[in-house]
Simulated assay, not measured.
Amino acid sequence: MADLHIDDFYRDVAGILLSLYNGFPSPSILFVEDLIGPHEPDAFGVPAPRHLACFNAMLWMADEGFLRYSDSIRQEGLDQCSLTERAFLMLSTPAADWLDEALPASIARQRATPAQRLRDALASQSSTELAEIVQRCFARASVRR
């Protein structure tokens, strides 16, 4: 059985990290809908399961030290959200085995960052590639702890 919820989790993590990285170091409001699009609540106003999964990914990332925030906005998002130093270094430090020495140094350095690899994986829509890169990011971050 495919673990589709884990594929969604990896996609959410990539979106959350890149959203905060693209605005770093400024704190921002991070809305679930901006990451995964609109998902209508049920007849009782309970958010859709996919919406809740993305929101819970945000909270998990905060608990694990990848982001900080000042307050939650109901179950819609997080206010004054930013990457931690740990997450910033995880995303911006080039991986030696990803460096392409055939490219100019500045371009090679940029392309070897996990942030760029996450962008490329999201653009390719490859769940396998995205899973590998998110897992590698987590592994890099756990070494830094």
Rank of each mutant, 00 (worst) to 15 (best):
P41F: 14
Q75V: 15
S28A: 09
D71G: 06
C81D: 08
G23D: 04
D34L: 04
A57T: 05
L78E: 07
A115V: 01
E64Y: 12
F138H: 10
M90D: 04
P27T: 03
A48N: 10
A121S: 11
V134Q: 00
R50A: 12
P25S: 12
E40V: 00
F44N: 15
M90R: 05
L89H: 06
L89R: 08
T113D: 01
D12F: 06
L17S: 01
R119C: 01
A121C: 09
A139V: 14
D8Y: 10
D12I: 00
P25F: 09
R50N: 07
S126F: 09
F24E: 07
R140W: 04
L130Q: 01
F138S: 05
Q116V: 03
D71N: 15
R109I: 02
E129I: 04
S126T: 04
C54Y: 11
T93W: 03
D12Y: 13
L78Y: 01
S142P: 15
P41R: 11
R86G: 02
R136A: 14
L103P: 08
M90E: 06
D97V: 13
P94D: 02
R11A: 08
L99V: 10
L91H: 03
A53E: 09
N56M: 13
L118R: 02
L91V: 11
D3W: 09
R109V: 02
A62H: 11
P49E: 14
T113N: 00
P114V: 04
Q125T: 10
Q80I: 12
S106A: 13
E129F: 02
Q75Y: 13
I29K: 10
V32P: 00
F9K: 13
C137D: 01
I107L: 12
D34Q: 14
D100S: 08
S19H: 10
V13K: 00
R145H: 15
L118N: 00
A96Q: 12
P114H: 02
P47I: 05
L4V: 13
F31M: 13
D7S: 13
A87C: 11
L67C: 14
G23E: 08
L130G: 05
D97S: 13
D8F: 11
L99H: 07
D12G: 03
V134M: 01
L4C: 05
S124V: 06
A108M: 03
L30V: 01
G45R: 09
A48R: 03
Y10C: 07
P27N: 04
T84I: 15
S124H: 03
G23S: 10
